[in-house]
Amino acid sequence: MTRRPNAPMPDSLRHFMRAGQHPARSVPCPHCGVGQHKPCQVPSSKRVMNQPHPQRISDWARNTACCPQCQVEPTTACHDEGRPRISVHARRYQEAEEMAA
């Protein structure tokens, strides 16, 4: 048997090792620019934050859950009577959190 110290970790194992982190860390942050699975930072001081930026949580909800309020599919922006919203509906956040649990 050979030892491979740099062998890639399977995605199923990686998911359980990151179980204590917010699921929004699975998408890059549009506010501070950090990549997937990295903690958000304060852009001016590069201080690491405990929670993701609201924009990152919004992107995560948009990419993972259908919106029960405006009936759009994942990756489609929520809308109010045909006008696109900047953020997502609160019910879409709830849907995304239920899917992550």
Rank of each mutant, 00 (worst) to 15 (best):
T64N: 14
P52M: 04
R47S: 04
A24V: 01
C29Q: 04
P30L: 13
R62T: 13
V34M: 14
V27Y: 08
H53T: 06
P39Y: 05
V27Q: 05
P39K: 11
C29D: 11
P28L: 09
H22P: 03
P30I: 07
S45D: 08
H15V: 06
Q55H: 06
S12M: 02
R25C: 03
K46Y: 04
D59V: 05
Q21Y: 10
K38Q: 15
V34K: 12
A19F: 00
S26G: 09
Q55Y: 02
I57Y: 04
S58Y: 00
N50R: 13
S58V: 08
R25K: 04
M17S: 08
H31L: 05
P39S: 14
F16K: 12
Q51K: 11
Q51H: 10
P30R: 07
M17V: 10
G20F: 05
V48E: 14
S45A: 07
Q41R: 15
H15M: 10
H15R: 14
N63Y: 11
P52D: 12
V34A: 06
P23C: 07
I57K: 06
S12F: 06
W60E: 03
C40N: 12
F16Q: 13
A65F: 10
Q51A: 13
C32H: 11
D59N: 12
A19T: 08
Q55S: 12
P23H: 06
H31S: 09
C66A: 15
S12V: 07
V42P: 00
C32T: 11
N50I: 01
H37T: 05
P30S: 11
G35L: 11
C66N: 13
K46T: 00
H22L: 05
V42Y: 06
C29S: 09
H53Y: 07
I57A: 11
Q21S: 13
G33S: 10
P54K: 09
R47F: 01
I57M: 14
P68D: 05
Q41F: 00
C40V: 04
H31M: 09
K46A: 11
Q36L: 11
V42A: 08
V34F: 08
Q36A: 15
R18I: 00
N63Q: 15
N63W: 10
M49L: 15
I57L: 09
R25V: 01
N50T: 09
W60Q: 09
G20A: 13
C67I: 02
L13A: 13
R18A: 12
C29P: 02
P30V: 07
P28G: 08
C40W: 02
S12I: 04
P23V: 01
P23T: 02
R62W: 03
V34L: 04
Q55N: 06
M17D: 08
C40K: 03
Q55V: 02
Q36W: 00
P23M: 06
C66V: 01
R14M: 09
K38F: 09
R25L: 15
C32F: 07
C29I: 02
P23K: 07
V34P: 08
I57R: 13
Q36G: 13
H53C: 15
A24C: 05
P43Q: 05
C29V: 03
A24S: 15
Q41E: 15
P28S: 14
L13C: 00
R56A: 03
C32Q: 11
H37K: 06
N50A: 14
C66W: 12
A19P: 00
H31Q: 14
R18N: 14
R47A: 13
K46E: 10
A24M: 02
A24P: 02
